[in-house]
Design a binder for these strands. Structure first.
Lengths: 216, 216
DNA sequence: GGCAGAAGTTCGGAAAGACGAATTTGCATC
DNA sequence: GATGCAAATTCGTCTTTCCGAACTTCTGCC
């Protein structure tokens, strides 16, 4: 069985590949994502290659093998179902569940996860809008784009949030930008400030923040 | 923060003390409980003494300090609330939850545990009848005795099960000896076989099994 | 085409936690 | 009091995962 550490590396690699749109991740990015030094990552990448979870070429990056991708999806499935479960069942705020799931994802059995899945009636996504991988390893591709890429006048509906830090999520709650919220881009000035209309209210948002919000 | 390993050692020491009625545990018992070799335990006992979780005298045994007892109770509280939660909310069978909780107890935050406690309306005991420590570190003492100590003719109600292995628990389910089940000791022969009446039915039980069942 | 500087790799070493063999201690028995 | 066995301890070693410093490779810029 894969150790907790290996699960975290594989998950990080998978998510970095997704984020970059490519299919390989850089040592430095992985180090930053996991909070370790680059040298540590290099040696772990060799380990991952040894156990056939990743293909690693020095100075070029890593990509996951099918086995690595499957493991990453299992971890992600556990993580996201746990998040959804905590919000649905225990009414936890959406800004607390990520951290909790980060630990629990390595501790729950697949049997329990499948039970949670059934209990929640097979949800398609977690509280942050991230799609939940199926038990057969399938992951639906979402059709969304950053709010920052919307032109002035464009209407949108919030479908997903990338940055899942508690502070950022709380600020979204304060602005009324929950998952499913609808609005319209009113203005975007050169300094990167974006103005939104949300029903009656108006909200101001930095471009960097709007980049973390996915809409359709 | 205490490592997963330290939490397991402290929990094992606490439970061995409880089981023996004394307040110290032997190296060999701890090794057997945790599935490691005695030498490993000896070195860990020194570590526990170093961080003031236990008092250790070579060749005599260990006992927990107040800090060690507090940690053990926190772990036990997490374990038992998780068990109760899995049974109540997800309808998991009582023979599966121990193993699951064994892993999860190290992964959930105290914040989440308190939320589960409130959600379950502050249950007094877990699915096996073990009392749940309160968040202030209090643990109620149960007034129960082994079914094996009942004399012929004595009536009883099952309050708690010591052996929490799936096989044993399933055999109890088959016999109708769930928590709360009432019955009467009908016979006890010299070979250690005990006969019970449970409502309409009759059940045969080995003395070793009856020793694992606590009643009042 | 050459050369900083950034990114990546190598290597020695440390901490946690475990094993296994050799040794020591304690205790019951004679 | 001597002895022998079971239990406990000691010690060297292994694996995993990390750090940090020294070194190598890559890349963008002149």
């Amino acid at each position: 069985m894969a150790s907790l550490t290996i699960e975290n590396y594989v998950k990080a690699i998978f998510q970095l590949c997704q984020a970059s749109g490519g299919n390989s991740a850089a040592t430095g990015q992985i180090a930053a994502a996991l909070g370790v030094l680059p040298g540590t990552v290099t040696s772990m990448l060799k380990t991952l290659a040894d156990v056939a979870l990743a293909s690693y070429t020095p100075y070029e990056g890593v990509s996951l093998t099918p086995a690595g991708r499957a493991l990453a999806l299992r971890v992600l499935r556990r993580h996201r179902l746990i998040e959804q479960f905590l919000v649905t069942t225990l009414d936890m705020p959406w800004d607390e569940v990520h951290e909790e799931a980060e630990h629990m994802e390595h501790a729950v059995s697949d049997r329990l996860i499948d039970r949670i899945d059934a209990y929640l009636n097979y949800p398609a996504s977690d509280p942050h809008g991230d799609p939940i991988p199926k038990s057969d390893g399938t992951l639906v591709v979402t059709a969304d784009k950053p709010l920052a890429s919307c032109i002035v006048g464009e209407k949108f509906r919030v479908t997903r949030v990338r940055d899942q830090s508690p502070e950022f999520l709380r600020s979204l709650t304060d602005l009324g930008l929950e998952i499913g919220a609808c609005g319209q881009v009113v203005a975007a000035d050169a300094t990167g400030q974006i103005t939104l209309r949300l029903g009656e209210a108006t909200a101001e948002l930095a471009r960097t923040a709007a980049d973390q919000i996915l809409v359709e």
